[in-house]
Design a protein around this nucleic acid. Structure first.
Length: 640
DNA sequence: ATTGACGAAG
């Protein structure tokens, strides 16, 4: 009998044999209107036709008759439950399969496991896994991938070890799942070694997972090595490496690789374009971003890609485009709304940002942690202290979100910018989270705006305790001392910088003109047009001086004497970039500039006046926010 | 039967 079961007979025959087997050991009640064999036929048909309702009825009859169908048929039924999201039905099938002391085959158990995993019923999956008499590489891999998908990294890695202990060897499926669960930079090389030892590093799936995890841990060099070693690459591997560079703020290399990919003959898909957009966002390449957009509309609407588009337009300071993309989007998720809210806030459209937050709630989309960061950011950047406090206090009650570090940071910013520095300090001391360097830096920034030397010194001390080499803190502190004419203190700070070998990052500004990116560094004279730029800059300054512009030497780092100070201010990179843009861009185009450091007050005043006399729209994006200069006014309302 | 890529803040 046993050998018959293993024969190559068609499923229906095997079921009948099985029925015969079982009926001899249990008393069955036969239905008057259908024989067991037609029951099985019906059941099989319903399963293959994906008719879940009828299949479940038939399953109940089978259960009553204590009959079993073929394993393959059951696997079809489970797939059907999965496709329809029918959790309860899936559980019933499980129960049926284990009724009467019967043990399903391993492959059927694996399918059940997979079903529980896909339904995110990890406890059920675990219980089943524990009771399975036999587990093969698929069973283990299913569990491992379940764990790594929900970030239960420790469990995923633990199971990898356990499977080794049981003598089951991982395969490429296992490795590409477990890599995601890499718990830190220590586990990654170990895993990589294991992969190389088994020779599985030749698999494209494993490779792309390796590239991905290396880039997620900021080890892009290693990711690139893996990429370079590959003899054959597919689209996803290209996307992994391009995405890796884009996410690590290396837009240049991402774009170069994108070009290589096209040369290698791979057409970009939506994931590729999303990464390219992200690279454009990072580099403020609005024109290139627009070209990508032109490709995008040809494809059917992809939510992720459109969210990236939204972000690109916001971060490139083109809110008209962002608005129109947002309005036309058919589907919007929490990321679309959050992107737009934060984008409006960063670009100074605070009221619109808060209104959009209301529309979001009205649309039925639940705000999440990041949405609230954007909302608080909007309040803090507009000085809306009351509103900010309201949202902060009620976020837990209204949205069930516990305030995190970023939210606390926004409140510090809110109080600090509004000049309530003492309150901000009190707030930090009362925080439920240990303040980190970012928190203190926020306070320090506010001290600079409000010229509060005492609290600034205190904040700087806290930062330097945590990050002794933080150049920005030294610079800010020394500027604050210089502003209050405490030259000795300022000199002391710079001495400490030298002693600790902390270097000042030079100010740098970028501008895109005719598909080329031009970078300017303070007092950099290497640009081919530098003479023309200097001449124009001097002319401009003369013209705006008549309107009352006086270089604000408070923003010069060094305690130099008068004219020299003005001189170094003159060559701040954003001034060079603005002039370059004025000269080289068509009159109707806005001058868009990106800066690596925050804009200084002098350049801010300069840009306002220039926007007026030249009648130009100037947009400057610094690492935190955007300044839209138009007709002598800035969108930030001089509050930044 | 089990595997890889893309989006929001700081």
């Amino acid at each position: 009998m046993k050998s018959l079961l293993k024969s190559t007979a068609p499923p229906a025959v095997r079921s009948l044999v099985f029925f015969a087997l079982r009926s001899s050991i249990s008393s069955t009640t036969q239905s008057s209107y259908s024989t067991p064999s037609t029951l099985i036929d019906d059941f099989t048909r319903f399963c293959y036709e994906r008719d879940l309702g009828r299949a479940m009825n038939a399953l109940a009859s089978l259960q009553n008759h204590r009959i079993r169908a073929d394993s393959i048929t059951y696997s079809e039924l489970i797939k059907c439950c999965l496709a329809k999201g029918a959790i309860e039905e899936g559980k019933q099938v499980h129960k049926h399969l284990y009724s009467d002391g019967y043990e399903p085959k391993m492959f059927l158990n694996n399918i059940l496991l997979n079903m529980y995993v896909k339904f995110y019923l990890l406890d059920e999956a675990r219980t089943l896994f524990e009771q399975m008499p036999e587990r093969n590489v698929v069973s283990w891999t299913t569990m491992i991938s379940a764990f790594s998908n929900v970030k239960l990294n420790e469990d995923a890695l633990k199971y990898l070890i356990l499977m080794h202990r049981e003598g089951v060897m991982p395969n490429m499926f296992t490795y590409s799942s477990v890599l995601k669960a890499c718990d830190g930079l220590e586990t990654l090389p170990q895993l990589h070694c294991g992969i190389i030892k088994t020779g599985l590093d030749s698999d494209v799936y494993v490779r792309s997972a390796l590239i991905d995890i290396y880039s997620k841990w900021g080890e892009l060099d290693n990711g690139f090595l893996v990429f370079n070693e590959m003899a054959t690459r597919d689209l996803i591997v290209w996307n992994s490496i391009i995405g890796g560079f884009a996410q690590n703020d290396n837009g240049d290399d991402a774009l170069n690789l994108f070009k290589s990919m096209k040369r290698a003959g791979f057409p970009a898909n939506q994931a590729t374009l999303t990464s390219v957009l992200r690279a454009c966002t990072g580099l403020v390449l609005l024109e290139l971003g627009r070209q990508v957009h032109a490709h995008v509309i040809k494809e059917e609407e992809d939510l992720i890609l459109h969210n990236a588009l939204l972000d690109m337009y916001c971060k490139c300071g083109s809110l008209e485009d962002a608005d129109s993309v947002f309005e036309r989007m058919i589907k919007k998720d929490v990321i679309s709304w959050s992107t737009m809210i934060a984008g409006l806030a960063q670009n100074g459209r605070t009221v619109d940002a808060l209104q959009l937050f209301e529309s979001m709630k009205a649309s039925g989309t639940t705000p999440n942690y990041i949405t609230i960061v954007g909302v608080l950011f909007a309040c803090s950047h507009a000085g809306l202290v009351e509103d900010g406090w309201y949202y902060f206090r009620s976020m837990k009650r209204l949205f069930g979100i516990d305030p995190g570090r970023e939210h606390y940071g926004c409140i510090v910013d809110l109080l600090g910018r509004a000049g309530k520095l003492d309150e901000a300090v009190k707030f930090i001391h009362g925080m439920e989270i240990e303040p980190d360097a970012v928190t203190w830096r926020t306070l320090l920034g506010a001290c600079k705006v409000h010229k509060n030397v005492e609290i600034a010194t205190y904040a700087a001390e806290q930062i330097l305790k945590l990050e002794p080499h933080d150049e920005g803190t030294y610079i800010l502190l020394s500027n604050i001392y210089a502003n209050s004419k405490r030259w000795e203190d300022a000199a002391e700070v710079r001495k400490t910088m030298r002693d600790r070998r902390v270097k000042k990052e030079p100010g740098c500004s970028w501008i895109e003109v005719a598909k080329e990116v031009h970078a300017f560094v303070v007092r950099d004279e290497s640009h081919p047009q530098i003479d023309k730029i200097s001449r124009e800059l001097n002319l401009l300054i003369q013209r705006i001086s008549i309107m009352g512009y006086v270089p604000d030497t408070n923003f010069a780092l060094h305690d130099l004497e008068g004219e020299q100070k003005e001189d170094s201010l003159l060559y701040h990179s954003e001034k060079l970039a603005i002039v370059f843009g004025l000269i080289n861009l068509p009159k109707e185009k806005p001058v868009r500039i990106m800066k690596n450091l925050r804009i200084c007050g002098d350049c801010h005043a300069f840009a306002k006046l220039v926007s007026k006399i030249e009648n130009r729209h100037i947009v400057i994006r610094d690492p935190v926010r955007y300044h839209h200069f138009k007709d002598g006014v800035c969108s930030c309302g001089d509050y930044w």
